[in-house]
Amino acid sequence: MGHGRRFFSSSTVTICLTVMATGAGIAAINGQVGASAGDLVPAPPTISSSPPRVSDASALTYPMDRYELSPDDQLLMSRATIVLASACENRFGVANSNSGNITTVPIDNSRHYGIASLAEAQVLGYHAPAAADPSSSSNDKGASSAWTPSPLEELTAYGTGPGADALKDRDVNPLPNGGCYTQAWSQLVGPNPLDPEVANSRSHDASTFAENDERVQVAWRAWSECMAGFGLKFSSPWQANDAGWKMDEPPTTDELRTATSDAHCRDKTNLVGIWYAVESGYKNEIISMNSQEFTKLDAQLVGERMRAVQALTH
């Protein structure tokens, strides 16, 4: 048949790629501050040979999102904090004026890999849509909805500023360390709370493993070649994203052209679909490998919600 000599069997290549992906992951983890999964390294996860395309990243969710406070949780916990803090402040003869008008912030993975939507890229370039952002109209300190406590209320609330040490409640107890809001939060999280950074750290490990996974790297290279076809030289999607576009000005023609090509190439190479599938796979593996830790995190959140509801109903 005239075939050349085969140097490696397909299984040898697979083993090499697996070792390379794992080795790169180990190196990346070791190089990161706060990396935590170095004790156990997940095997490159199995993903579909053709992961679903992601052309709209606004609904992307990850296995570790459930360990974050949802907007409903944020509202619940905030209201409970105010109720508990008010009781504390009352003991110091201070009325709490906080209306609880807060901005909740959803878990937003829409830009986790940069742009994904061609339609959006054609109009906005690399600019993020801001109109739907809840903070756009409510953040000003001078807004009518803003909390404007008196100096004494602020002192009892957060315990910062001169005079905090001298404050005594009706039973001559000192102001709690960090003020009444810190005490209220401590009551909600309960004794010996887990470090919330645990989930962040584990999540980061998965992101790093994913970025260094050979399948993602192959997709990056394919994307780069596709971009070169448009006359654009970028070695990684982050280079294009961070090419110095002026986000405080309308997108330029150059930005729109680059972003449109970028989104086209992402779709053509299924870059985001592959990246998402690999990262989700690593996250699932890391959760399984640290199941006791994540079970505790789950229980922690359940306890916080329960104590918040109790604070609001008693």
Binding site: Q74, V105, V189, N200, S207, D242
Partner: peptide, 26 residues
Amino acid sequence: ANAVANRTVGSGSLTRVQFFEHAGFA
């Protein structure tokens, strides 16, 4: 390729500030 770790500072349920590794909140 090294993703920067998500990091949360402080305690409480309210988000005060978000900073992002890349332009456009990426």
